[in-house]
Simulated scan of single mutants.
Amino acid sequence: MNVQIMVTVSGSNQTDLVKVLSEKTHALDGKWLNSRISHIDDYFAGLIKIEIKAENVETLVNEFKALEIQVEAVEQGSVSQTRSTHLNLSIDAKDRPGLVSQISQVLSENSIKVEDMQCHRLGLPDIGGTVFTSQFKIAVSNSFNKEQLISSLQEIDTDLVIDLRAQA
C-alpha cells in the first residue's frame, strides 16, 4: 500500500543534494508529489511531499539521514478539503525591529494561512537606512474581508506599502 509522507530536510548544502534525494526516492519506487527547496548562504532547507510504499518509508528516511542532514518525516493524515482563495500580499516599509512579528500577528488575527513567505532587508545608502520588503502567498476563507486586513496592517505603521491581489 502506498502512503504519502511529508519530509523536512535541512543542513549544510552539499553538491547535487537534490539530485541524490530524488534518486534515493526513485530507487525505492517513490515519487515526489510536491517540493520546496530553499538556500540561504550555505544552508538549505526543504519540504518534500512523497508517495511511497509503506514498507519503504523507514528505509528512505534512514537513507536521507545517512547524508548527514536533519530529516523529519510525518505520514500525512486526512487532508481537509475546505475551499480557500489564494492571494499574493506584498508589504514594503522602512525597516525597523518587530515588523515580521507584527505582520504575522495581524495575519493570524484575520485567520489567514501563510503558504509562503519571503522577507528581505535591503540597505539603501541613498536614503541612509534599510528597507523591508516582503512577499506572502496566503490562503483566505470565503468570509475574508480585504478592507479589514489592509486596515489592520496599516495600524502597524502608516508608511507600509501594501499590495494584495489574486494569484496568477
Results as ranks from 00 to 15, higher is better:
residue 111 S to F: 15
residue 116 D to Y: 13
residue 45 A to I: 04
residue 56 N to Y: 09
residue 96 R to F: 03
residue 145 N to A: 04
residue 25 T to W: 07
residue 26 H to V: 04
residue 120 H to G: 10
residue 155 E to L: 05
residue 127 I to G: 10
residue 37 I to P: 12
residue 19 K to W: 10
residue 110 N to R: 00
residue 165 R to Q: 14
residue 137 K to E: 14
residue 138 I to W: 07
residue 78 S to G: 14
residue 166 A to H: 12
residue 165 R to Y: 10
residue 167 Q to C: 07
residue 36 R to V: 01
residue 101 S to H: 12
residue 163 D to S: 06
residue 56 N to P: 07
residue 94 K to I: 00
residue 57 V to R: 01
residue 117 M to I: 09
residue 49 K to S: 12
residue 167 Q to Y: 12
residue 114 V to P: 07
residue 14 Q to R: 01
residue 112 I to N: 02
residue 85 T to L: 15
residue 126 D to M: 13
residue 12 S to P: 07
residue 4 Q to W: 08
residue 67 L to E: 15
residue 47 L to M: 12
residue 26 H to W: 15
residue 57 V to G: 04
residue 9 V to E: 10
residue 56 N to T: 08
residue 159 D to I: 00
residue 44 F to R: 02
residue 156 I to V: 04
residue 2 N to Q: 14
residue 41 D to N: 12
residue 145 N to E: 15
residue 126 D to A: 05
residue 28 L to R: 00
residue 148 Q to H: 10
residue 66 A to I: 04
residue 15 T to S: 14
residue 103 I to T: 01
residue 135 Q to C: 08
residue 51 E to L: 00
residue 147 E to W: 10
residue 57 V to S: 05
residue 70 Q to L: 06
residue 88 N to W: 01
residue 99 L to H: 03
residue 75 E to D: 13
residue 57 V to L: 03
residue 40 I to N: 10
residue 83 R to W: 05
residue 44 F to K: 00
residue 88 N to Y: 00
residue 154 Q to G: 06
residue 54 A to K: 09
residue 110 N to F: 01
residue 117 M to D: 08
residue 157 D to N: 10
residue 4 Q to F: 06
residue 1 M to A: 05
residue 19 K to T: 12
residue 50 I to L: 05
residue 145 N to R: 05
residue 122 L to K: 06
residue 163 D to M: 08
residue 146 K to I: 06
residue 51 E to H: 02
residue 140 V to R: 02
residue 23 E to L: 05
residue 1 M to D: 11
residue 73 A to V: 02
residue 167 Q to V: 08
residue 90 S to K: 06
residue 152 S to P: 13
residue 65 K to T: 04
residue 47 L to K: 02
residue 124 L to E: 14
residue 37 I to M: 15
residue 12 S to T: 13
residue 9 V to Y: 00
residue 133 T to M: 10
residue 66 A to Y: 06
residue 30 G to E: 11
residue 74 V to C: 08
residue 51 E to V: 03
residue 139 A to E: 11
residue 131 V to T: 10
residue 133 T to Y: 08
residue 40 I to M: 11
residue 62 N to I: 02
residue 52 I to E: 13
residue 157 D to H: 07
residue 65 K to C: 01
residue 110 N to E: 13
residue 129 G to I: 00
residue 45 A to R: 00
residue 50 I to W: 01
residue 71 V to D: 08
residue 121 R to A: 01
residue 86 H to T: 12
residue 86 H to C: 09
residue 163 D to N: 14
residue 55 E to D: 15
residue 56 N to Q: 14
residue 134 S to T: 05
residue 132 F to M: 05
residue 83 R to Q: 14
residue 73 A to I: 01
residue 3 V to P: 13
residue 133 T to L: 09
